[in-house]
């Protein structure tokens, strides 16, 4: 979601970063289960990673900022399941299945876990057209604010940077998140001078890059 609370780059007032020595992967048993349920449900649920991200970030900023990380995952999972009639609100409140299961294409069997994780979900796709930009080209991040999911952070919007890496053609999240298909687009790393982003008094030795799909860019 454009302008959502998840779009945090450059926002002030969150304070210091607090590292935790010898941090464990999970801090409570419910975090383990919420993590695993989220991973396992993508298969029967049939949603993709962009739909998951969209579900997590699509909530009022006060909710997003007051939830812990896995509470956000949980809220996203509940939303995706409710939308598809897989687990309804009355079931979650009662703690048991109240409605017959919907048929699903596949589920994650224990025998498949390591294979599925090792395979992952590569997003590279055959390009539909030649790349519009090459390394070194100057580009401007388009001034767009789509109402649905996007991976264009607002702190770079309208700014001019240079193409540093060309990653090939990849699934376009803005399209994939809404169910409109993968619509693959060329993906680039675009690098900005810190002072162009944060003003002339900013550190002169800072450079910041984002990864950006071609529809986010225009020649500069």
């Amino acid at each position: 979601m454009t302008e959502g609370a998840q779009d945090m780059g450059g926002v002030r007032g969150f304070g210091k970063v607090v590292p935790e020595p010898d941090e464990p992967p999970f801090h409570a048993d419910w975090e383990r289960r919420a993590f695993a349920l989220t991973l396992a449900m993508a298969m029967p649920g049939g949603w993709n990673i962009d739909m998951s991200r969209s579900a997590r970030e699509n909530m009022p900023p006060a909710d997003y900022l007051s939830k812990s990380y896995y509470q956000i995952w949980l809220a996203g999972l509940e939303k995706l399941m409710a939308e598809r009639g897989l687990a309804a609100r009355d079931e979650i409140e009662s703690g048991h299945a109240l409605h017959p299961p919907k048929p699903v294409k596949r589920t994650l069997s224990p025998d498949d876990v390591s294979k599925v994780l090792y395979r992952g979900g590569p997003t590279g796709r055959e390009p539909k057209a030649p790349a519009r930009f090459a390394a070194g080209d100057k580009v401007r991040m388009r001034n767009i604010a789509p109402p649905t999911h996007t991976r264009l952070p607002r702190y770079v919007r309208g700014h001019v940077g240079a193409i540093e890496l060309v990653h090939g053609s990849h699934v376009f999240p803005d399209s994939n998140a809404t169910g409109a298909g993968e619509n693959p687009q060329w993906l680039y790393t675009v690098c900005f001078d810190g002072r162009d982003l944060w003003g002339k008094d900013a550190d002169r030795n800072v450079k910041v890059s984002v990864d950006a799909w071609e529809p986010y860019l225009e020649p500069a």
Partner: peptide, 17 residues
């Protein structure tokens, strides 16, 4: 409680093992 409820429901429905 919510996570526990979810795991129960999804297991009962056969969506997760």
């Amino acid at each position: 409680l919510r996570v526990r409820a979810l795991e129960t429901i999804l297991t009962e429905k056969g969506y997760v093992e």
